[in-house]
């Protein structure tokens, strides 16, 4: 490789490659849940401050995405689904991703602290630490429970949003955390059932590989059942109400029904119809989370009319 290859056309990173490094799709979930956490909190926040806070929470999430891509570049090169990411494709160097990730982490925490309060800023810092160090560095490659514990990182944003408004933690924010935390494993394992990534080649212990696909199906059912009481409990708190309760009952009934269907399926049957039930369950899991948090938003927006809430 000559030095010329570094400036060869096609290898030079465009602006979009840096955006891709921040995992914009994951960011959209972070933005939505953090926004709900902030809006449903009992303390009003100036709209501009709220906008800034959510922007920097999203940036913090993006920074952890860049650090994750830096650390996992070796895995991403091996797996087909991730081989076109900026680092494995050779458009951005690993050092550049590390630098960008670290700089944006510090910036986002500082700015969130300045815009709202230092508890929220520190909480964002902890979340980045949790995702990058605890999940990416320690757990992802060592235990098939990686998804379960790593899911906590994705569950923190509504708590950060709540902290922006109130400066602390409350049972309501803990239950919002618990909802995403319990939702993550069935969501990801359903994906793992039909994506069939070559995790074993990449050295990542996935439940589907270590314990088998039948065991993964049972795990999905168990977590889905455990998720239901969390959703109902959240709807009974001060941020819940009749709308949330009805949403929780309907959504969880459908979610459990989907999980039962998955648990009962034989692998051959699933393969025969190209994982139709698993794909449907995965798509529904996205709607499940969106509608749950949407219901919380509805409760809050009905409050000025004397409706919503208990």
């Amino acid at each position: 490789m000559s030095d010329l290859s570094a400036i060869d056309h096609g290898q030079e990173a465009g602006f979009g490659d840096y955006v891709q490094l921040l995992k914009p799709r994951v960011m959209s979930l972070v933005v939505f849940t953090a926004m709900v956490g902030l809006i449903v909190a009992p303390v009003p926040v100036h709209p501009f401050v709220a906008f800034t806070a959510i922007l920097f929470i999203a940036l913090g999430g993006g920074a952890s995405g860049a650090l994750n891509m830096w650390y996992d570049a070796d895995i991403d090169r091996v797996m087909r689904r991730t081989a076109s990411r900026p680092i494995p494709a050779g458009r951005i160097s690993e050092g550049e991703a590390l630098g960008l990730g670290l700089a944006l982490s510090v910036l986002s925490c500082l700015m969130l602290g300045l815009a709202s309060n230092w508890f929220a800023g520190a909480f964002l810092g902890f979340t980045i630490f949790f995702y990058v160090v605890v999940y990416t560095m320690w757990l992802k490659r060592s235990t098939p429970q990686n998804i379960v514990i790593g899911g906590a990182a994705g569950a923190f944003p509504p708590m950060i949003g709540w902290a922006v408004a109130t400066g602390g933690v409350a049972p309501e924010s803990l239950l919002m955390f618990a909802l995403i935390f319990m939702w993550t494993p069935p969501h990801f394992w359903a994906l793992a059932l039909f994506m069939k990534d070559d995790y074993s080649k990449a050295g990542v212990p996935m439940l589907t590989v270590t314990h088998g696909r039948a065991a993964t199906r049972k795990h999905i059912l168990v977590y889905t059942i455990l998720l239901a009481p969390v959703a109902v409990a959240l709807s009974l708190t001060s941020i819940g109400g009749p709308v949330t309760l009805v949403a929780a009952i309907v959504l969880n009934a459908l979610f459990i029904a989907g999980a039962v269907r998955i648990a009962r399926r034989e692998e051959t049957a699933a393969e025969a119809d190209h994982y139709k039930a698993e794909k449907a369950f995965f798509r529904f899991s996205l709607a499940y989370l969106f509608l749950h948090f949407g219901a919380l938003l509805v409760e809050t927006s009905l409050a000025p009319f004397g409706l919503g809430g208990w």
Binding site: G14, F15, F48
Partner: peptide
Amino acid sequence: GRRFGRNLGLGLVLGAFVALIFGL
């Protein structure tokens, strides 16, 4: 073209950041 796009993007981001700090 790529390089220009990158510089333009960064410029806009920095401009937005300044506007944000001012608003805040």
